[in-house]
Amino acid sequence: MISRYLKAPPFEYIETIVRTQLIIVLVLALLTLTLLVFRNWRNRRITALKEEYASMLLTEIMSLVSEGKAETVIKYPGRRSLSRRFALKTVMTEHLGSMSGPERDYLIQRYEELGFAAEDLKAVHSVLWWHRLRAISNLHLLGLDKYGGVFYAHTKDRNQLVASFAYIALSGLKHELNIVRPLQKLPRAVRVRKNVMHEILRNWSRVHGHQFLIEQIQQQDRPDLLTYLIQAVSRVQSPEVAELLTRKLADPSLPQDAAEQILITLRNVGDPDSATAVLACLEHPHEIIRLRAIEYFIAIGDIESLKVSNIYADKSVTVRRVLQDLEGVA
């Protein structure tokens, strides 16, 4: 009797449903297994090819070092040998990131001779953003000024990540377009903006020298950019930087992030001349600034300044705890 109801639509199709499900199960199972087997086979092949090319590349470079002229061992794998081309290109890009001097110049020359650079230049126009990104990343590894125009064009890429990487690539070159676009133009939507900015400033510091960054700090009025710039100069442990940062610390309009970064830098430099400016930070409304100021005094071994301040009676438990911990370590 119930079967009468259950055989009504949509249940009348139950047999077809079961049959279709069975087919789907078989297809999924086969697909998963095939993928697994194919991936394992491909991984083995690529690993073997990479080893082969790495050893050939080493032979070429060794002959360059010992005889002053490289013996060409690697030949172009051919357009159809996808795995070979992939393996060779991967080996070359891996080595490009780790080599320097004439070996690197030779590697760049071979990369271009084998047509990989031309391939990348073509790929930067791909409709798939991850192809454009990979191509820009590869060209960035070459570090050649002649690709500055390509990077500059892609700082306006519709994909924010590609645009950011083009910016990073451009910032590492001694190219006339390098500092044309102001920092403010960096895409805001990029989630790792802070890291991108940091990378760019690090490149600028390398290309233009830290003096350039110091000038930028003096001119900069945007709080976020000021913080990035301070982070970028924080690695430069010079009295000039310490003096500039101490001066900045006294500025009442200084944003919290920037103040924290300055205190970290001063702690790392360990310059006792900044003590007067840092002492005022022990009264700062933000807990983190007071903590950084404590760290500075502990680092320069000036416990006395802490004792004369009100920091031991600070309202924050964290501040009192850190003070206790650091004192214990000191």
Partner: peptide, 20 residues
């Protein structure tokens, strides 16, 4: 009076859906 074959089909369908 439910058909046991039909019930079996439903169980098979549920089992296979879970497997999918």
């Amino acid at each position: 009076g439910m058909d046991s074959l039909l019930l079996g089909m439903f169980f098979a369908a549920s089992l296979l859906y879970g497997a999918i």
